[in-house]
Design a protein around this nucleic acid. Structure first.
Lengths: 138, 138
DNA sequence: CTTGACCCCGTAGTGTAGTACAGGGTCTAC
DNA sequence: GTAGACCCTGTACTACACTACGGGGTCAAG
């Protein structure tokens, strides 16, 4: 087992498309790896860790731009982690906001589905009437 | 006060960009309006209602493609509204799923922010460690 | 020594929902 | 009669995160 990975091996390991690796490299999310004589990328084991970091941060709702920032902070040898914490708290706030918003949508949709008996003609459909009405949604 | 609206008037009334109106027209969300001799669009009052319908459905989480379907159902004179209700219930389910997903993200972020005292160096940052770890998030 | 799997690069396309712009015509008021 | 506000068309651009493709080079097995 070699100490380095080809792009295809890294992609398989990280469960991502091979093009995604190149895309991340172009975007500065993965460092440019050394190359073999023939120009093939030879990723160190650390690349798999970094890829995992990216995927995990994504699952938490961080955009690639934000992940770039996190990686930059991580790379500063003597930086303190306060900025990282601030990022995480800010993201938490954003996620919370999205939840609030979706819950409002959910309540409105519940009202609508209750307004619908399901067997009337569209001309008397409570849902369509609601969306059509002059006033704000009731 | 004329019985018809110019595109600019409709845009102002509906609080959308004028280009959005043309975009909706191209996408079949607003019917092509009659034109003046000089080729200006002359929207009937109903266009403002339809625009409101679109915006309201959007607020509920419907995509433009779904709204196109709703409008088609609405236009069928003798259709029944069961399909509309199914759409609404399906959307409710989707919204609920998104909420679940975001709540999982929220919990994970809360764990992370608790793991961070805020004054350590990045090399000991609980958040970065967590994102970096081999195993699934704890 | 050829076949097939893999890799390279650069460019272009996907989907969603718009937004902007260039290069013109029209309409209203002064 | 001309300035300024409005309208027309078609095309291209935005953001986001990829994904695909064309045209080539490389590498290991048989």
């Amino acid at each position: 087992m070699p100490a380095t990975l080809t792009i295809g091996q890294l992609a398989k390991l990280g469960q991502v498309n091979l093009e995604t690796i190149r895309f991340y490299e172009r975007g500065g999310l993965l460092p440019e790896p050394p190359r073999s004589r023939s120009g093939y990328r030879a990723f160190p084991e650390g690349a798999a860790r970094q890829l995992r970091f990216i995927k995990r941060a994504q699952e938490l709702g961080f955009s690639l731009a934000e992940i770039r920032q996190l990686l930059a902070l991580k790379a500063e040898p003597n930086g303190d982690c306060a900025k990282v914490c601030r990022q995480a708290r800010e993201k938490l706030r954003e996620v919370d906001e999205k939840i609030q918003h979706l819950q409002a949508m959910k309540r409105a949709l519940q009202r609508l589905t209750r307004a619908c008996s399901g067997n009337r003609r569209v001309s008397e459909c409570g849902i369509l009437e609601n969306l059509d009405r002059e006033e704000a949604r009731s």
